[in-house]
């Protein structure tokens, strides 16, 4: 990666201004993926001095600073108890400890990686992204934006919940990207996200609506819900798996996941 200039931002405002000054500016979070995906940067902005590496526990919320490493998040006890620990599970399945020590939650969100395991988990948790310019926005709305906003992500706020959750990733080896991942939470309402389809994670809204409209959830309603999901969620073929095989994975693990959360 070619870097013409490296700037350590002195405060968030400065970082925001630098980023929006010219098209050739980029923020570096952990940097591991950037090395592989970016050829040249005019101005590389570092957020290392902005104290964005923290996990704060409030009464209702957990707030994770954008520059917090995945490893720190995965080891945090409060995160482990969020919805059966689905965020911990999603993070633990990413690469090795070395990478998770440098990769940050901010980078994982802003990259909007198609293969991301984290985005699915965040989609089904009750959480907001806190930006410098945009202020608060849901993960779902963030993923709907046609382009990644030219903004500085400051933190992620997650509503505390001991609701039941399910996360499952299918991959060929323990260091591989997902062929598919599924995240489910059930509080009063169901939320279901499917990722690495191979497109970026998305919510199965119709499926969740169907389940949420049922007075009782049993094996039959789960079966029906899975049918709706297979219709609703588009999967396709890439190097790692075919569309047809992804459909099997979706059907199988959505069924298993739903049965687990209603247990």
């Amino acid at each position: 990666m070619e870097v013409k200039e490296l700037v350590r931002a002195i405060d968030i405002k400065a970082a925001y201004t630098l980023l929006n000054e010219s098209k050739g500016s980029k923020v570096m979070a952990g940097g591991a993926w950037m090395k592989l995906s970016v050829k040249s940067v005019d101005k590389l902005i570092l957020l290392d001095d902005l104290d964005l590496d923290y996990i704060k526990e409030e009464n209702e919320f957990l707030e994770i600073g954008a520059m917090t490493s995945l490893r720190t998040i995965e080891m945090h006890p409060a995160i482990k108890s969020l919805s059966s620990g689905i965020l911990t599970k999603a993070i633990k399945s990413i690469m090795g400890v070395q990478v998770r020590n440098v990769a940050t939650i901010g980078g994982s969100v802003m990259g909007r990686f198609a293969f991301s395991d984290i985005l699915g988990a965040l989609l089904v948790l009750d959480c907001q992204l806190c930006f410098h310019g945009l202020h608060e926005i849901s993960v779902f709305d963030f993923l709907q934006m046609p382009k990644v906003p030219s903004d500085i992500l400051l933190s992620i706020k997650i509503k505390k919940s001991s609701e039941k959750g399910y996360f499952h990733k299918v991959s060929k080896t323990h260091l591989d990207f997902s062929l598919l991942n599924i995240a489910i939470t059930k509080n009063e309402l169901f939320k279901i996200a499917i990722g690495s389809r191979p497109q970026t994670a998305t919510l199965a809204i119709n499926t969740a609506n169907f389940l949420n409209s049922q007075s009782e959830i049993n094996e039959d309603t789960v079966k029906k819900a899975v049918e709706i999901a297979c219709d609703e969620i588009k999967v396709s073929t890439n190097l790692r798996a075919s569309k047809e095989y992804r459909e099997v994975l979706l059907k199988t693990y959505l069924t298993r996941g739903l049965l687990e959360v209603i247990k």
């Binding site: 490893r71 690469m95 070395q98 440098v102």
Partner: peptide, 20 residues
Amino acid sequence: NTSCGVCTVLIDNKPVPSCS
């Protein structure tokens, strides 16, 4: 590309991929 672990060093006692 951070896939093998051979370049591991410790930064503040945490293992990291020094290639990246």
